[in-house]
Structures are given as C-alpha cells and as structure tokens.
Design a protein around this nucleic acid. Structure first.
Lengths: 109, 109
DNA sequence: TTTTAATATCGTAATATTGCGATGTATAAT
DNA sequence: ATTATACATCGCAATATTACGATATTAAAA
C-alpha cells in the first residue's frame, strides 16, 4: 500500500502528523533555519547554501509553503520567502499542547 | 532517488528531522496518546483501539521504540509498552528549543 | 504436552518521497 | 527584441513508507 489510512484517525491527529511530516526532513529544517536567520526573504541563495539542486530546493519550498509555515512573494524576478509567524506560531502552540498532554504520565516499565 | 542526503546537513538537523518523522504519522500519534492515557502499559488493545492490522501496529511500535520514545518490557505472554519519559522529555526540549530560535523573527512579505 | 494468546518478523503490493536534469515561464537587463 | 536570471514544474529513477496476510516465536493455559 503506502497510503496512510487518515480516515480512521481524528482531525487533530492527522493535522499534527502532517505538521510533523513537513518538519521531518533535514533540508526543510535547514531552509526554515536559513529563512529565519535572514529575517525573512532572500530566495535561492538556498541552492548555494544547501548542497541540493534547484529543483529539489523548489520542491521542499513547495512543501513548506503548502503547510503554510512559509510564504513567498514575487519580487521582481526572484521570490521573497519568509516565515508566516501566525501559522508557525499556531503550529508550535498545537505541538506544545500535545507535549503538555503527555508529560504528566509516569513510566511503568 | 528517494534517499535523503543526510551528510550535507548537521547532526542537529538530522536528529530533529528524525524525531519529527517518527511523529509524522497519525497512527503513531494515536499510539502515543493511548499509551499515555493508560498510564503506560497494556499492549495490543491497540489493534482493537485503532483500526489497523496487528502487523501494522507492531511495525509502528517498532518505529517508536527505535526512536526511544517508548519502551517495551515483556510481561508474560504480552508486552508492556510505555513512554520513556527521559527520552520523550529531551525530545520535547530540543523541539521547543528549535521553536524558541525561530520565534523572534519578523515576517517581511 | 498440546493448544491458545500475544506478539514479532517476513514478504510483498501499493503508494509516497527524494533528488535531479530538462524544460517552461516570467521579469529584468542589454 | 534578445538574452540572462530566478524560479516552478515535469518526468523519471531510486528508495522509503504504509499496510497486511502469512508465518515464526514465546509463554501461559488446558
């Protein structure tokens, strides 16, 4: 198969899993880190910065864009990418919330 | 390809990406939630609880075990699974740390 | 001891992801 | 107008993931 049975899980579980999945690749973490460090913007220095082909970077950027974590604005012939603080903040909040839920538990074995 | 070029990223990026990847499936989040709710233990009620085959659950449990988040102790003919608070706590800490790093950034576009 | 219950592992099919070259598209520069 | 630059998208190959039936394995129960 290879297809996830999303229908048997609740909305929150699917939503969270999708966030985690987007963050589950070092290239995308590196992109986030870089975009954040640059106080936003500046586009495909990423191709020079990370050691990946332009097509590959573009693909990872797309995944991050689709999650809402970053957004891109066309700026002349290049694109300005930056973090969408509202979305990124709410994702962080939801993840922290998950952490809080399961932190109270005692180990038993 | 399909193979991640881990060698071009730093250790922290790879480590974090792996944690996120493990959490990036609703079944594994559901398992974590269930194990936590049960104050640890109680094994494959999971097969009844979630709507997945025993082999599939076992596979997801293996992934969680390999990450260190949960641990299993043999208890008669069943296995007691529970969260390893130390590991799970340090993963949470590292993720929160990542969040802290990138929260100060201003949007620019 | 044979059976049953609770897992783990194997093998396999379906699908997803990663990565990249090639190519398309839009804008700026010449 | 032509060319160059900065992407996005397509198509493909390699590999990974998800899911499950079938088959171990191991220990309690009968």
């Amino acid at each position: 198969m290879g297809i996830t049975k999303s229908d048997i899980f609740n909305a929150k579980q699917n939503r969270l899993a999708n966030y985690f999945k987007v963050l589950g690749h070092p290239a995308r973490l590196a992109i986030l880190e870089y975009v954040a460090k640059q106080e936003g913007c500046i586009c495909n220095d990423l191709v020079d910065e990370l050691g990946l082909a332009q097509a590959t970077i573009s693909q990872h950027l797309k995944a991050l864009k689709e999650s809402g974590i970053i957004q891109g604005t066309i700026e002349g012939k290049s694109v300005c990418y930056c973090i969408n603080q509202e979305v990124w903040g709410s994702i962080q909040a939801e993840i922290k919330d998950l952490f809080k839920q399961e932190l109270s538990v005692k180990s038993c074995c």
